[in-house]
Simulated scan of single mutants.
Amino acid sequence: MIRVLSVFVIMILPKDFVLADCGVVTREQWDGLSPTRVEYLPRPVGLVIIMHTVSSPCNTDQTCAAQVRNLQTYFLDQLNYWDLGPSFLIGGNGKVYEGPGWLHVGAHTYGYNRKSIGISFIGNFNNDKPTPEALAAAKALIKCGMTKGHLKRDYKVVGARQLIATESPGRKLYQEIRNWPDWTDNLDGIKNN
Rank of each mutant, 00 (worst) to 15 (best):
D128Q: 15
A138Q: 01
I49C: 02
P181W: 03
C22Y: 03
A160R: 11
W102A: 05
P57G: 11
C64L: 10
G189S: 09
C58N: 11
F75R: 11
Q162D: 14
M11H: 10
L71F: 09
L41D: 02
L141Y: 01
F17G: 03
L47T: 08
F125C: 05
Y74F: 13
K148E: 15
D154E: 15
N59Y: 15
L79S: 10
Q162E: 13
N126F: 04
R3C: 14
N127A: 14
I164K: 07
L47A: 05
W180C: 01
V45C: 04
T109F: 00
H104G: 01
T131C: 07
V54G: 08
R178D: 03
Y155I: 06
P132C: 01
S87K: 02
F121Y: 11
P42E: 15
G118K: 04
R153H: 10
N192M: 09
M1A: 14
L33M: 12
K156F: 04
V158N: 02
C64I: 11
I119A: 00
T26A: 02
A134E: 01
D16E: 15
A160E: 13
G149D: 11
N193I: 06
I119N: 01
L151P: 04
F75H: 12
A138S: 06
L187H: 09
V38W: 06
G32E: 09
G91A: 13
S87Y: 02
R171S: 12
R43V: 12
G111H: 07
Y40C: 01
I164T: 12
V25G: 02
G23S: 04
K191E: 03
I164E: 06
W82H: 15
R69P: 08
G92H: 11
G170M: 07
R161Q: 11
V9N: 08
V18P: 01
V9E: 11
W30L: 05
R43M: 08
N59V: 15
I117A: 02
W102I: 02
L151K: 06
V48C: 00
G85V: 10
Y81H: 14
V48T: 02
Y40K: 13
L163M: 07
Y155C: 04
E28K: 13
V18D: 02
D16A: 06
L19I: 01
V24I: 14
M11K: 11
Q29H: 05
V157K: 02
G145E: 03
I49S: 00
T131A: 06
G170Q: 09
L13R: 09
P44R: 07
I122V: 12
